[in-house]
């Protein structure tokens, strides 16, 4: 398996990268960690004539707190996310999710931006970002714009990114202290994409759920933000009846493909099972 030929560019700044992408147009692809793109190039499913490697752009790396938000540079690797004390304290679900992505080697190279921007429905970060209400900073020839993760994904590999634009940072509102969270992922083995996965973040007070958000991975051609399912949890004690209702609402919005992970009906049901388990674990973690 050998990729086709291409020219390689390694800009040092976002402005240079954008300028290159604008100049080279549709024939160019930005390269982040490369573990989605390079295998596609090796099977010649992708044949870009130019690769614009974003790895040398220092501005795209790092995790910082800004106002009530956590801002993560797009080229921050999953390995870095896992090791971040700041995230461990404020957004532990990112670490939990990152540990379930691919395998150790790939997590050194794989980036949060690449995972989020690629538009692969199998990736884990998109549903998590939707669950967390994150927004993406897209930098293009006309400057920076922000698009909510919940509005970014259009179809498999189709996103709101315009030609010449790069996802440069992800801004995540910090959930309240004491929130409950869980990412439940069913997969065949380490290194596999999810058969189905669910991200849940919620808050509890006086035994009742006061807020909830749910993201679902790999059960449609885009990540799914299960708004109605989450609403069905709010105001309940997250008892069986409430979970049954949320699961039914979540299952209703899935439309998974059949593949080696199982037929569509199985993956829909697994989205429900993962949601139920994530909600139960989130509840157990929430301060009441």
């Amino acid at each position: 398996m050998i990729p086709g030929s291409f020219d390689y560019h390694r800009p040092k700044s976002v402005a240079d990268a954008v300028a290159l992408l604008v100049k080279l147009g549709e024939d160019a692809r930005p390269l982040a960690g490369g573990h989605s793109l390079i295998p596609m190039m090796k099977t010649r499913l992708a044949t870009p004539e130019h690769l614009v490697d974003l790895r040398a752009i220092g501005d795209l790396k790092g995790i910082r707190e800004e106002g009530g938000d956590i801002v993560i540079g797009a080229m921050t690797t999953q390995h870095t996310l896992i090791g971040s004390d700041l995230l461990a304290a404020k957004l532990p679900i990112i670490r939990e999710t990152s540990l379930l992505i691919a395998d150790p080697q790939i997590r050194y190279m794989g980036t949060i931006g690449g995972n989020a921007a690629n538009g692969d429905p199998g990736n884990d970060m998109p549903a998590l970002m939707q669950c967390l209400g994150a927004s993406y900073e897209l930098t293009g020839p006309n400057g920076v714009r922000r698009v909510a993760a919940r509005e970014f994904y259009q179809a498999a590999y189709f996103t709101a990114l315009e030609t010449g634009e790069i996802l440069t940072a992800i801004r995540i509102p910090v959930p309240p202290v004491g929130h409950g969270y869980a990412y439940e992922k069913l997969k065949r083995k380490i290194g596999d994409y999810a058969t189905a996965a669910a991200a849940v973040v919620l808050t509890m007070s006086g035994g009742k759920c006061t807020s909830a958000s749910i993201g679902l991975t790999n059960v449609a051609d885009t990540p799914l933000w299960a708004e109605e399912a989450a609403n069905a949890l709010v105001g309940t004690a997250l008892d069986k009846a409430a979970l049954d209702k949320a699961v039914a609402l979540a299952e209703a919005i899935t439309s998974p493909a059949a593949d080696g992970r199982g037929p569509a009906e199985y993956r829909t049901k697994m989205a429900g099972v993962m949601l139920r388990r994530a909600a139960e674990r989130a509840k157990s973690r929430a301060k009441n």
Binding site: D103, R188, K189, I190, G191, D192, G260
Partner: peptide, 14 residues
């Protein structure tokens, strides 16, 4: 599924 993504070769974890 003629790749190691689909053809089940367990890792040390499984």
């Amino acid at each position: 599924g003629a790749s190691f993504m689909d053809f089940f070769l367990p890792t040390a974890v499984e």
